[in-house]
Amino acid sequence: MSPAAKSSITLKGSVAIVTEFLEFGINSILFQRGIYPNDHFVQVQKYGIPVMLTNNEEVKKFIRTILTQLQKFTLDKCVHRLVLVIVDVRTNETIEKWDFKIELTTNDDEVTNEKTDLNEIQKNIRDVIRQITASVSFLPFIDKLCCFDILLYTDKNTLLPSDQWSDGKPPIIAREEKVQLRSFSTGIHEIDTIVAYKKEAV
């Protein structure tokens, strides 16, 4: 490989990669699971594949607010996972959740190893996004009106960033089934993606 492959990565860079992945991941899920109509999305090229991004300003703002906060938390190393929950609007029941585990693999602020090649990271991220896209084939079809919410799991002693934040309830799915997708690592963070869904009654 080129000498660039041996480049190092900083905590800040890793956080940027992770939040970018989460943005595209969340958008893909919203599109694939039909939470919003198709015409609320536009196609962009990212990681070498077409990815759908929402063009609904309110949704965009919501996701951006949360990811900005996540970015701060990740830099403070006090966030452990981001969970996207899909809730049936009528019954208020959680029917699906997407769990992005953000694991800090090192305490150093700058790392150089074989995992830090940007191309390799992007390739791994692409594989995860592809799996998200492919997941509609096994996930139960959502035919109810649903909304989504994003939860951040932080350290116990983390303070609420502002009065716009509050404590959320842990999402519990009755008759849950889980499928873990691929994971990727930036050398500093390792991201595991797990989708949990309600098993269809037989």
Partner: peptide, 23 residues
């Protein structure tokens, strides 16, 4: 060991009458 945080201003609902087109 964890605290779960959520943002108070929730994302908007899908427009009225929206049905999952993948149906």
């Amino acid at each position: 060991n964890h605290r779960i945080l959520c943002f108070n201003d929730k994302a908007p609902l899908a427009p009225e009458g929206h049905a999952n087109s993948l149906k």
